[in-house]
């Protein structure tokens, strides 16, 4: 396969993932709305929002880094996504999967945040550094159980290639990591709560105290970029989790495979929505303490379990 086709496929894959991520966001808003006892916005509302923010006539910038913030963020999202094979066995949706891509993906998850931190800090608003410090601190902590869980997987499957991990889970539902290594899944799912930034780990973006946190100064196209990334990155995370823990999406028919992907990611996402609707948010130090306590212990336990039993 030549590189042009590869890039073309990647573009299609990115577009589909972004659209899916945004739609998922819209659906989740509707689900939250039902919990609230109302109907909620239309599912396509996120798309209009992006158009609207893009359509601003003026836009204020606070320096070069300010431009780079959203770009880094989007790069992070793209990077994360592009190295995850979305559909097992599909050419179009295999992206740039390669040996060791799991490491790369984990790096990119972090990368976006860091870039954002630099850009948002340039905004000069006191709330953005507060949000950033919280965000980074919280992120470091939820990365710990996640990393532990990934290490457990690496030990279990003896690889750092996502495709291989997915392949290892094929055949029967009992081959999923969920059943072969439940502790690792638990640790990872808890850290997913932090990653998705729903309650109780939404302090970084808490509108009630640090209005919207890091992106407070972001406007117009900057914000639109961030929103786009939100769709893409959100989809990427979910696909990653699906691949690592829930057997990935595999079917000879690409559409059925996509449907499987949709169902699985939706359910994974619903997990954090389920928790998010029921709880308020933690204070930053509480959430850090939380991640470093039980999930970390579970993560370590999973490694021990895989390594020695």
């Amino acid at each position: 396969m030549n590189i042009t086709t590869k890039i073309l496929y990647a573009i299609i894959s990115v577009l589909v993932a972004t659209a899916y991520g945004l739609t998922l966001g819209g659906i989740v808003r509707k689900i939250y709305a039902r919990v609230h006892g109302r109907y909620g916005p239309p599912v396509w509302q996120p798309f209009i929002d992006i158009l609207q923010t893009h359509g601003k006539r003026v836009s204020i910038s606070h320096g070069y880094m300010f431009y780079l913030g959203p770009v880094f963020r989007l790069a992070g999202g793209l990077g994360t996504y592009l190295f995850i094979p979305v559909i097992f066995g599909s050419v179009v949706f295999s992206n740039f999967s390669m040996a060791g891509d799991l490491l790369l993906v984990m790096y990119f998850i972090f990368f976006g945040q860091l870039g954002m931190a630099l850009g948002a800090g340039e905004g000069g608003h006191p709330y953005s550094p507060i949000g950033i410090s919280r965000g980074l601190a919280q992120m470091s902590t939820f990365e710990v159980p996640f990393a532990l869980s990934v290490i457990a997987l690496a030990i279990q499957y003896n690889t750092l290639n996502i495709t291989t991990i997915v392949a290892a889970q094929q055949g029967s539902i009992l081959n999923w990591t969920l059943f072969t290594n439940p502790l690792a899944v638990v640790a990872a799912m808890i850290s997913l709560l932090g990653m998705n930034m729903h309650s109780p780990f939404s302090i970084v973006l808490a509108p009630q105290e640090i209005p919207i946190g890091p992106p407070i100064e972001m406007n117009s196209s900057f914000l639109a970029t961030l929103q786009t990334n939100r769709g893409l990155f959100g989809a990427a995370k979910l696909v990653l989790f699906m691949n690592l823990y829930f057997g990935g999406a595999a079917h000879p028919n690409i559409f059925i495979a996509l449907a499987i992907m949709v169902v699985k990611t939706f359910l994974i996402y619903m997990f954090s929505v389920f928790v998010g609707a029921a709880f308020p948010r933690f204070r930053p130090e509480q959430s850090m303490r939380f991640f470093l306590k039980w999930p970390t212990i579970i993560g370590i336990a999973s490694i021990i379990l895989v390594a020695y039993f």
Binding site: I31, R34, V35, G37, R38, A277, A278
Partner: peptide, 16 residues
């Protein structure tokens, strides 16, 4: 106990 909030999701919304 807090997951009780999901009870409302099954009910008819109050919205006019």
């Amino acid at each position: 106990s807090p997951f009780n909030v999901w009870k409302r999701a099954a009910q008819k919304p109050w919205t006019i």
